[in-house]
């Protein structure tokens, strides 16, 4: 037990922030910040793609559907490798692991958010769009003032779940040497060497608390939304 407490005492800060401030930010804080940033940055693109996805013009909806299918058919790790090996060549700038991870996460999140947005729009009773258009509002105005406010509110639990997925996805940064929390845990394990089980259980527990907490939030949001919904006529 002593050794365990010593482990936590010695390494908790390193686990939390990596080598910061003596080096780049790492650890749990990096994981959380990267995930949050990726989701926020992906929202505008996800919104546009989602709207395009439900467009009545097939010239718009089909290519988007195609892109979504392709992105969902390949592993995130593969896209990460592509980005890591080719972005520097393409942009001429040596992109850091964090930047590479962020870009890949934004691409993936946009696609999944697009599906959430599209599903939310499709789930809305058609009468909502019809009554908005009957008042003379254009499709764009109807989307902006009537459809999207409701769809996005209804999609909030799914968006929170997407955040959970993103947090788990950041772990793949390990493979390209990003100092996110799993990488740090492995570093600690190498340094300590005799407490592998404890180190990795702490890692698992950390993820669990973070992700489970967020998914409970999503669940509670879902319940609240159902209670506030207008009774279907």
């Amino acid at each position: 037990m002593n050794a365990f407490l010593e482990l936590i005492d010695t390494y908790w800060l390193y686990f939390l922030v990596g080598q910061y401030p003596d080096g780049p930010l790492g650890g749990l804080v990096l994981t959380v910040l990267l995930s949050g940033a990726a989701l926020v940055l992906a929202m505008p693109l996800g919104l546009m793609l989602g709207i395009a996805r439900v467009s009545p013009y097939r010239a718009v909806s089909l290519p988007v559907a195609g892109v979504v299918q392709v992105v969902r058919a390949v592993p995130l790790l593969l896209v990460l490798f592509w980005a890591y090996f080719f972005l520097p060549a393409v942009t001429g700038v040596k992109t850091s692991q964090a930047a590479t991870m962020l870009i890949v996460l934004v691409v993936f999140d946009s696609v999944y958010l697009a599906e959430i947005v599209a599903a939310g729009i499709r789930a809305l009773p058609p009468g909502q769009l019809e009554s908005a258009r009957s008042l003379g509002l254009s499709y764009g105005q109807a989307l902006r003032h009537v459809v999207l406010p409701q769809s996005l509110a209804n999609g909030l639990p799914s968006i929170v779940n997407q955040l959970v997925s993103t947090i788990k996805a950041t772990s793949l940064g390990y493979i390209i040497g990003l100092s996110e929390v799993s990488f740090i845990a492995s570093q600690i394990n190498t340094l300590v060497f005799t407490q592998s089980v404890q180190v990795y259980l702490i890692l698992a527990l950390t993820y669990f608390m973070l992700c489970f907490g967020l998914s409970r939030l999503a669940f509670l949001l879902e319940r609240r939304l159902q209670r506030r919904a207008v009774q279907p006529n």
């Binding site: 019809e130 009554s131 009957s134 003379g136 509002l137 409701q150 006529n233």
Partner: peptide
């Protein structure tokens, strides 16, 4: 359409807006 009022069988009020906001939106 702005010059034609339409009342639906299932009302189709906007649930995320108040009664007043429903009437002032358009």
């Amino acid at each position: 359409r702005a010059g034609i009022g339409f009342v639906f069988q299932h009302f189709n009020l906007f649930p995320h807006l108040t009664v007043l906001e429903n009437c002032t939106l358009a």
